[in-house]
Structures are given as structure tokens and as C-alpha cells.
Nucleic acid binder design. Structure first.
Lengths: 344, 344
DNA sequence: TTGAAAGCGGTACCAT
DNA sequence: ATGGTACCGCTTTCAA
């Protein structure tokens, strides 16, 4: 299983990677001194000439410290693991991830994205634990179990934060509730007098963990109002949308929450091609409030999502790492509100 | 700089992370035996009762091996580093990245995405080298220098693969040329008789490394044909597009390559709002061949990109790792072709 | 079949 | 101001 062939097989005279011992030898000092100089250890004073010698030797050899060795000795890693099954798709998540990683580095952590596609929750937790991350921030695509969280904590993780909608026993906080989006969308539609509401449920893998909660939220909002909520499975393809539009009038709906702006665009186009007027005959609302929605005619109503900033989440990580035994906080770092435009 | 407080400060009685020594003690065997059992070492036969004892002890303690310690001992890591400045945006790259990471794991590697936002090429190379990756696959967002490549190789990287358009001395292969996209777009426009061609250049950070080469490719295609290529800086905002559209007739262009389908949608909408007919007065072509382009009216012509599959790139990585001194290959793993629809 | 021990590359304590 | 050295967790000869 090891991807590496024997050293000798491929390359008989492998030039060895320089170590701090090599630097010490070249500079004519001890390994301890090398460590002091390169880490600017304040507790120890090293003479200027020695410093120069060490730096020169390190430079000459192209010395780079070995992160694994260092963290082995230190007993901790500074790795914040960001596991994901699928690379998050969409500009919102991209921006969020960039932010988060940047903010984490500023705080002295090393953000590492680790793809766990095709592992179950406990296998994934094991794989993560091997890296001895100081914190794990899971988007919730991987169903983390209580045992998984426990395993991570026992392996030294001081913070395990899930962003998913479901509470996981032992995890420190959960911060994003997709249900809120469905709630806002349907509340908006109800407020404008629509009562027979379709909810698009994307068929693409990797979206279930968003789609499910959004539908649940939609149902919650309709509860007790007498309004109808009709789930509408839809693949992200022109033909699928056309097929749905073809049987649209038979469905007898007067509004639809289309999961997000992209699905909304897909469906709205198909409805219009079918001669169904938006919003007169059927109102359409998306989510994410993308620019593209504003470019449609009629302009698309949407649920605007104030994503947690990477900065704030990084701060939460930092706080929990320093005080792992603080009460598991429940943060709602995501805020959502409906934006009315022309399509509803 | 260390994000960790003293152990004692936050948590006086920190339960230590179990090690293989703990497992050995609990099972009543030596550490060597534990290692043999847990790794299924074939060169050594361990009695069935002993195996059971070890597995039980490991289970009881929630033992997880320490990846850093293991690779320190082994002398190599199996890490394939996928550095990126920005998380790649767009469904094309997401799918590609997922594929790649999955394929790499199947080959026994550990794919690690590492965000290097705000580092220059050499600082980034140093940071990557600290992790002692066996291979580095760079999208080319970070300008890797010859020194950077050399540093990585000296630190043990057996494969350094860049996907960018520019050849980097010492890197093993380069596999994606964004210029091809600009070339195809403009060739398509020329073939349909357009000769005064605008090329949208996005102003957003993180896109320069795609936008530049696409413009260059556009120029290349126009060379010697007498056609005009006019760069058009554009921010991804409605107002910016409106402003550009307002002075459109003064520009005297008869076609535009809009960088990609999303910018194309933005610009096309603005042009139409200005009363400019597409394609009669101005032809528009995008790139990426997204579904959204087919939803526009007129349907958007585009440059379809056959992205390298993650599978193939993973195989390339594997090949180079096993034979690092093979000739630097130049692969063209990306293929592009213009797709004609209604907007041109 | 199992155990003792060396050593991977750093760091930090204790001497000098 | 600098050097010697123990140790972090794990693998892997070599001996028993």
C-alpha cells in the first residue's frame, strides 16, 4: 500500500534531506545552538557572529525544519483540520473558506483541508485523529458521531466544532442552521399570500445535507397555517426542469422555493418557456442572493445569507482551544433574511 | 505565536493521549508486538491470542497511531500537498479537486489542501517543505520559482507538478494552459466574421492567473489577421457592467469574449438593457460551458473545457513519485473547444 | 513467537 | 554563551 518504492530502487544515491545536525556541523556549533538561533529563543542569548554562522549554514544547505519532528517533540500540532467530503461549491462557501484559513493562520494555526470522501463517520474520525489536530471544524457533510468526537478529543483535539444542523454530542458548538433558510423563504411567500408552495429538492449528491434541512425549515414555517408544502425533486439539468415545468399546471402550486438561485434560474426559465408567468401564475424565490438572480427578468427574490465570517469562526476556534472545557456554546453564526424583488 | 497555552494553565489534569506503549502495557506485551499486530506485519507471525489481546487493548484505550511519529520514523510522509491561494471557485474545479483527492487516496497518498493566501512564492515553498510532502501539485495561483521547486525537492518532494500556464524550471510537468481558452474563443469569433473583439478582464483578485493567459491567448489568435483585440476591465457588479454597456457603442466592437459564462451573463444583460442586440449588434461568447449559459436568451456560445480528470492526474503524480528523474513531461491534460449557440 | 533497543529530527533542560 | 543529552511516538532490525 505504501506508494514509495525502496529508496535504492529508484535512485541509488539519494541526496539526504539536510537536518539541523547538518547545519550544526557546517556552522561548527551544536544542534542546540542551531535550534536557539533559528527559533529566536528569547531565553537564551547567542552571540551575533554565531547567529550569522548558523543562518549562513542553514541558507547554504537549504535547511527547512521538519514539522512532524517538531510537533512530535512539542506534543501538539497547531493543525486545524477542515474536513470535507466535497469541496464546497459556490462563491459563498469559497469566500468563507478563504477567510477562515487566512484568519487561522494569523492566529498561528495551520489550516489543513482534508478530503474524506467515501469514509463513514468513524473511519473518518480515525483518519483525522492520526494527524493530531488541535481543532477540527466540520461542515457537517460527514456525519460525525458522538464516538467520533470522543475519539478526536482523546487524541488531543481541544476543539471539535460542527457547522451542521444536527447537534452532535460532545462537539463544542454548532453554528449553521440551514433550516432557517427554508423558514425565511416560506415565511416570505406566506406573507405575500401564497399558500400552495413547492420546494425544490436537488438530486445531486453532496447537497443532501443542505437540501434536507431547507425543506424541513420550509415545513416548519408552514405549520399551522394550512399552507401546502410540496417537495419537488429536481436534477440540475435542462431536461429535468422542462419535464417538471410540463406537469406544472397539474401540480396546482402558486409559488416555489427553488433551493437556491441557480436552481431557481433553471426552473424559472423552464416555467417561462412553458408559458407560465412569473410571478403572476407562479412566484419563485431562490436563496444565496447571488448576482445572477438580479440579472434575471423578473429579478429574482432570494434569501440573503449572512455567512459567518471566517474571522469570527477562527476566533471561536481559538477561544475553545484555549478553554476546551467551557460550556458547549450554541452559536448562530449564520443569519438569513428574505429579499423581495420582482419574482414574488 | 504558539496558540496553545501551557497545559497546566487550562487543564491541570490533562488526560494524556494513549500511545502504543500504553496499549502494550495494557495487553501485557511489548511495544514491538503492538506495532506488528496493528500493522499486520507479514514478516512476523504473532499468535492469535496475542493479536486479540492487543486489538482489545487498543480498542479499550481508543488508541490512534500518531501520523507524525510514524512518518518521522519511516522517513517519508505520503502527503500530496495541494496548495491554493483561493479555494478554486466553480463546479468544474470542485469536481476536479474531489476526483483528484479521491484518486490519490486510492493510491495510498494523503491529499492535503493547504491555503497559502498572502505568502510570496518562496515563503510558501518553505511552509510546504516543512510538511515534507512526497509530492506537490500546484494550481499555479502561487508563482512558484525555480528556487522554490529546488527547495521542495531538497526537502524530499519527489514530484513537483504545476498546473499553471508558465513553465517553472525544475517542475516535473505542467498540464493546463488557460491561453488555449482565449485562443479558441477568438478563433471562433474570427471564423464567424467578427473582427473588432473585446476581451473582458475580471478585476477580482485570484482570477489574474486565469484572466491574463486567456487574454494572451486571445491576442495570439488574432495575430496576423488584422483583427482588433480590446481588453475590457470589468468588476463582477451590475453597476460596472452597466457603465461598460453605456459606453459600448463608442468602443465600436462587434464581438466580445467575456472571460467566462458568468461574466458573459452579466455583460449580456447590461448590453440588452442598453438596447444592444445580441448577436446582431454585438456577439458574446463565454467560457466553461455552464448550464446557466444555455438558460440565457439568446443561448450563450461558450468554450467548453474538458478538464483533466483527477484520476489521470493522480496517476501522473504516482508515476513521477516512483521515477522522479524521468524527463519532465509536458502534458496537455486540458482540452478546449468552442461551442456555437445563439449568441454568436 | 516475542522483547530490547536504536534512531528518525527537533527542543529544552542542565551543565559548563 | 554554548554544548551534552534526554525525550516525543513509532518502526524495525537483532537476539533470545
Amino acid at each position: 500500500m505504501s506508494p514509495l518504492p525502496e529508496q535504492s530502487a529508484a535512485h541509488p544515491v539519494e541526496r539526504p534531506v539536510p537536518t539541523s545536525a547538518d547545519v550544526a556541523r557546517l556552522a561548527g556549533v551544536s544542534r542546540a545552538t542551531v535550534s536557539y538561533v533559528l527559533n529566536n529563543t528569547s531565553a537564551v542569548r547567542i552571540s551575533e557572529p554565531t547567529r550569522r554562522k548558523v543562518h549562513e549554514a542553514a541558507e547554504r544547505l537549504g535547511y527547512v525544519p521538519h514539522a512532524a519532528a517538531r510537533s512530535l517533540r512539542a506534543g501538539h500540532t497547531g493543525i486545524v483540520l477542515l474536513p470535507s467530503a466535497h469541496v464546497p461549491v459556490g462563491p459563498l462557501y469559497s469566500a468563507f473558506f478563504n477567510d477562515l484559513q487566512w484568519a487561522l493562520r494569523r492566529l498561528g494555526y495551520t489550516a489543513v483541508q482534508y478530503c474524506s470522501l467515501g469514509m463513514d463517520g468513524d473511519a473518518a474520525a480515525r483518519a483525522w485523529a492520526e494527524l493530531r489536530p488541535v481543532a477540527v471544524v466540520s461542515l457537517g457533510e460527514i456525519a460525525l458521531t458522538a464516538q467520533g468526537v470522543d475519539l478526536l478529543k482523546r487524541s488531543g483535539a481541544r476543539a471539535v466544532i460542527t457547522l451542521g444542523p444536527d447537534r452532535v454530542a460532545g462537539a463544542h458548538a454548532l453554528v449553521m442552521d440551514q433550516r432557517e433558510i427554508g423558514r425565511r423563504a416560506v415565511a416570505h411567500l406566506l406573507g405575500r399570500g401564497y399558500t400552495r408552495i413547492g420546494v425544490v429538492v436537488p438530486q445531486e449528491p453532496g447537497l443532501e445535507l443542505f437540501a434536507g434541512p431547507r425543506l424541513t425549515g420550509a415545513r416548519t414555517a408552514a405549520e399551522g397555517t394550512g399552507a401546502l408544502i410540496e417537495p419537488l425533486p429536481l436534477a440540475y439539468e435542462e431536461e429535468a426542469a422542462a419535464a417538471l415545468a410540463a406537469r406544472w399546471r397539474a401540480l396546482g402550486l402558486d409559488a416555489v422555493f427553488a433551493y437556491n438561485d441557480e436552481y431557481a434560474m433553471l426552473l424559472m426559465r423552464a416555467l417561462q418557456d412553458e408559458g407560465i408567468a412569473v410571478p403572476r401564475e407562479t412566484a419563485v424565490i431562490g436563496a444565496d442572493d447571488l448576482l445572477l438572480g438580479r440579472l434575471l427578468r423578473p429579478r429574482l427574490s432570494s434569501v440573503h445569507i449572512d455567512m459567518v465570517t471566517g474571522q469570527r469562526l477562527a476566533e471561536l476556534v481559538h477561544r475553545v482551544v484555549r478553554d476546551p472545557d467551557g460550556e458547549p456554546e450554541r452559536h448562530d453564526l449564520m443569519d438569513a433574511r428574505a429579499v423581495h424583488r420582482e419574482s414574488t
